[in-house]
Nucleic acid binder design. Structure first.
Length: 352
DNA sequence: CACGCGTGGCT
DNA sequence: TAGCCAAGCGT
């Protein structure tokens, strides 16, 4: 296939003048660090650049190499991940590092080998291959889907047309320039998607692709890609208990390793149900007794439901759940050593 | 293959 | 404000 594509030259020329400076990105003329690329790509899954930057820097500080990451305890990795969300990514990343070290310590250099690693799928394998090793591939993420849908004015709805957009996107890097600079080409697509071809109010006047973009020419870029309507989010309810012991320690409970917020520590809580709890029912499920004082409510939005938690603290705590599996007393000043969700940080803030 | 899986910024 | 959506993966 030697068809020349006009897209790569335009993207690379724009990238040479407007690329973003990012901590995992090789400077001009320098070779990329595949470990930095791998780590950043895992963190960037469904997560914005500005959110990832401080997490990436803390990881590189604590784990300068993939071997350091593989040797680290899962608790260390999980606690550094606190607040970043989608916590299975952290466990898969840790496992991925161990798989790589077990295979000799070098990150695989083919897409098929990369995809065998935990937490690495089609997109991330292509991203590491193109950006980390400068090999020709088009990593198809949300940015690339959006750019592609607009370039060709595809009017059908996501997610049904994911395969169609992926197959169109894979033709974008035809031409000599993209074959010579696959990493810059891929990152150019991401930077254009993030700063120009935005989901809302795209800046077509500044876009290097405007002259070859069908949606721009038809003035419908802002309306593409279309998406099928999403199901409404149910509201779930729960009660959490703020129980302080001696030395200002607070009772925590570790969530199961599967499901929502897997493996993170939380205040002892009832199950989350699509009905409002009353306090007696909550106490009964927990096995607690005595009188409790209402502290307040917090709301938290997950991908698939909205959670409303009511917080209570005991007037006098007389039960002894510390004997139960998965419970521990932690001083709040030491909590950063343990993985904890943003939901639970919100709950604790409400109690102080 | 449709769904479960977090969080924060933007409009 | 409330919804939308982000450098997706695993099952």
């Amino acid at each position: 296939m030697s068809t020349n594509s006009p897209y790569a030259d335009l993207i690379l020329h724009w990238y040479d003048h407007h690329q973003r400076i990012l901590p995992w990105r090789a400077k001009k003329g320098e070779a990329p660090n595949p470990y930095h690329v791998l780590l950043s790509e895992i963190m960037l899954q469904q997560t914005q650049v500005a959110t990832v930057i401080p997490y990436f820097n803390r990881f590189i500080q604590d784990f300068p190499t993939i071997c350091d990451l593989a040797k680290a305890s899962l608790d260390h990795v999980m606690s550094l991940w606190t607040g970043l969300g989608y916590y299975s990514r952290a466990r898969n990343l840790h496992q991925c590092a161990q798989q790589i070290v077990d295979q000799g310590g070098n990150i695989p250099t083919t897409i098929n080998e990369l995809k065998k690693l935990s937490g690495i799928g089609d997109y991330t394998a292509a991203a590491i291959y193109s950006i980390g090793f400068n090999q020709p591939a088009v990593p198809v993420d949300g940015n690339v889907e959006r750019i592609t849908a607009r370039l060709f004015a595809i009017k059908e709805s996501l997610p049904a047309i994911k395969p169609k957009l992926a197959s169109l996107a894979k033709m974008l890097n035809q031409g000599q320039a993209a074959q010579e600079r696959p990493g810059d080409f891929a990152q150019g697509l991401f930077d254009i998607g993030a700063t120009i071809c935005k989901p809302k109010n795209p800046l077509c006047l500044l876009c290097p692709l405007s002259a070859v973009c069908k949606a721009c020419l038809d003035n419908i870029a802002n309306d593409l890609p279309k998406r099928s309507p999403k199901a409404a989010k149910p509201i779930k309810y729960g009660i959490s208990f703020f129980i302080q012991g001696s030395n200002n320690n607070v009772l925590f409970h570790k969530r199961p390793m599967k499901g929502v917020l897997a493996g993170t520590w939380q205040l002892p809580s009832t199950s989350w149900e699509e009905k409002v709890w009353d306090l007696p029912a909550g106490l009964k499920q927990m096995g607690y007794t005595g009188d409790w004082e209402y502290i307040g409510d917090i709301n938290h939005v997950f991908t698939h439901f909205i959670l409303k938690i009511s917080l209570y603290k005991p007037i006098i705590f007389q039960d002894s759940p510390i004997n139960a599996e998965g419970y521990a007393w932690y001083n709040l000043s030491q909590l950063d050593k343990y993985p904890c969700s943003s939901l639970m940080k919100k709950a604790i803030d409400c109690c102080l």
